[in-house]
Simulated assay, not measured.
Amino acid sequence: MDRALVAVLAASMLAMNGCGNGEDGSGSGRAGPSAPGTGRTAQPVITANSGLGRATGRGDPPKAQAQVGVDCRTMLGNRDFKTTAEKMGQVASGGGSEGEKAIARVCEAAAKANMRNFSGALETAQEAEEDIGAVDRSLRPEVEALLYHTAYVSAAAVGDDSAAQEALARLKQIGGDVNVYIEDACMVAPDPAALPECATVTSSPTTTGSPPVESPTPVTPGPEDSRTEPEGETTPTGSPADETSEPPDTENGDPQPTES
């Protein structure tokens, strides 16, 4: 019995030690305390919109380009950013069309940014921007949204304020809620004050949280005030109404003012 118990306990300890992420942390999509170059435990995660790889207008997009977009969206959604960067890098340097390569570079850049390789992400995003015109028009809006989201966050992270403002301007042209992009950029910027838009997301809690609940302030009626008191409202002690008014009848409806 003793030997069997020891064997069970040993097996349990081995199982516990074997649990957890891989050595490289791939697939988690989180930046832990050991993230290189930073002590922060939180960072934005750049993923593709649900429309990436789908036509936004009439006509059928090239199937190969659409497939690269769908693969990008799926892989970023799985948050295995290391594998995503590797595979999309292979597509970008492969023998596909310029449109396929441009979409792959955008996806590779986003994956690099999610691994906090912001300088590499910005460089890859800038390369992708040069060929973005090769992407089919029906697919381009979603690809550009991912491209400039990545470029904006990466430029903010490396302190390239000029490139960050250019990317933000493009995001505004595309449309949508730019506050989401601004929050991401300000989260990684070494000096958020260098980005004027960060003031809109780092203001006092009263502008972003729930409004405070205000307590009603009792009003002391003057001699000339003959208004009817609402049911359940208490007249302040010491007011003239204490000497002339009867307690409100809460069972028979609203109280009636007392004749002077």
Rank of each mutant, 00 (worst) to 15 (best):
L5G: 03
A7M: 08
A7K: 07
V8D: 01
L9C: 08
S12C: 11
G18M: 11
C19Q: 12
N21P: 01
D24C: 02
S28G: 07
G29C: 08
S34L: 13
P36Q: 05
G37Y: 14
Q43W: 00
I46Q: 01
N49H: 06
N49W: 03
L52R: 06
G57R: 13
P61A: 14
A66L: 03
Q67W: 11
V68E: 02
G69P: 08
R73I: 10
T74F: 11
T74L: 12
L76I: 09
G77H: 02
G77S: 08
D80K: 07
F81V: 06
F81L: 02
K82Q: 08
M88C: 03
Q90T: 12
Q90N: 14
S93R: 12
S93I: 01
E98W: 00
C107K: 04
R116Q: 13
A121R: 09
I132C: 01
R137A: 11
L139P: 06
E142D: 15
S154L: 09
S154N: 09
A155N: 10
S162N: 15
S162H: 15
A164H: 04
A164E: 03
A167W: 03
A169C: 01
A169F: 04
G176T: 04
V178C: 01
V178A: 07
V180A: 12
A189Y: 08
P190D: 01
D191F: 02
A194G: 13
C198H: 04
P212S: 14
V213C: 04
E214F: 06
P218G: 04
P221Y: 10
G222I: 00
P223C: 01
P223K: 03
T234L: 10
P236L: 09
E246T: 15
Q256D: 15
T258I: 03
